[in-house]
Design a protein around this nucleic acid. Structure first.
Length: 292
DNA sequence: CTCCAGGGCAAAT
DNA sequence: ATTTGCCATGGA
């Protein structure tokens, strides 16, 4: 490997610590490695190979350490991954007008929507995460990735291709403790993506988020929660709400001192104070759950 | 023991 | 049209 190249960025309304916290969160995830205050990752490159890179930083400063020949690809990837191109000023303005949200905004200021750039990975993660605790979900994902993914030089894995998973039988995933249903859903989605029936490009051609959402929901195993979750994390829509999300509902109850679950409409109504930023509010709610 | 986790499907009312 | 049972597992 040639001499690593360091790219230094200073990003307004960005917090390296908050973003790294979200990526890591103490769960074991073989798609990245955290060593101290740095994160190592690997990605597939356009030439059919792979490359590794490291993120370091502090406050609004971010350093990207990568192979020179893949500098632009890595920069593009990181920009999506950490949502660096988002203009955050209007979110701050909206937050400052909303008393029940202002404290959260200030506490986690600079946290960005951590994306899952690979659509298949996002769909798989949404299926895996249904109805089970996060710790077990990460275990399932790690088993899937370490068995069927690609391991890069730095030991970090790259998420498997849809084609690889499409070839599997449910029984093979059940060995990893997938439920029969989850196995069927995942293989079905892998098939849809492997055949090209479903792709990021096709999804992006649909103008409205409603159309995108309906397309995703048409696949078995993808319901309202998964569809909106995927639009948020893979596509980067910030005006969607992962309806039914247990974490979101618990955060809402906690913030507003409720003993009963709010319905979808109540959440929609409150979040209408943040037009275009609903998903970011949900992100900050998720973040708040980890503070006791 | 029961209930719930970053739900969704399919069968039963 | 709406409700209910089920899934795999682990922690509270």
């Amino acid at each position: 490997m040639s001499k690593p190249l360091i790219t230094d960025l200073n990003i307004p309304l960005f917090s390296f610590e908050e973003c790294i916290w979200y990526i890591d969160r103490g769960f074991y995830d073989c798609l990245h490695i955290r060593t101290g205050n740095a994160i190592e990752k690997a990605i597939s490159t356009d030439d059919g190979r792979s490359t590794t890179f490291t993120l370091e930083g502090h406050g609004n400063h971010l350093s990207i350490i990568c192979e020179p020949e893949y500098r632009q690809e890595v920069l593009d990837y990181v920009s999506i991954w950490l949502d660096l191109n988002r203009e955050m000023g209007s979110f701050e303005s909206l937050a400052s007008e909303e008393p029940k949200f202002m404290a959260l905004y200030k506490a986690y200021r600079g946290l960005r929507l951590i994306r899952i750039p690979d659509l298949f990975e996002a769909l798989a993660w949404s299926i895996i995460g249904q109805q089970i605790n996060l710790n077990f979900a990460y275990q399932l994902k790690s088993r899937l990735v370490s068995k069927y993914g690609f391991q890069a030089d730095n030991g970090v894995y790259i998420f498997p291709d849809p084609g690889t998973i499409a070839e599997l039988q449910p029984a093979e995933l059940k060995k990893l403790q997938f439920s029969q249903r989850k196995a069927e859903y995942l293989i079905g989605i892998a098939n849809a993506m492997a055949t090209g029936q479903l792709s990021r490009e096709k999804l992006m051609k649909l103008k409205s988020v409603e159309a995108k959402c309906n397309t995703l929901i048409s696949y078995r195993g993808i319901g309202p929660w998964s569809a909106n979750y995927v639009l948020m994390r893979a596509i980067g829509c910030t005006n969607v709400i992962p309806h039914g999300d247990a974490g979101m509902i618990n955060a809402y109850k906690k913030i507003f001192g409720l003993s009963q679950k709010p319905d979808n409409q109540e959440i929609i109504t409150y979040l209408s104070h943040f037009p275009g930023w609903q998903s970011y509010v949900v992100l900050y709610w998720w973040r708040s759950l980890s503070d006791k």
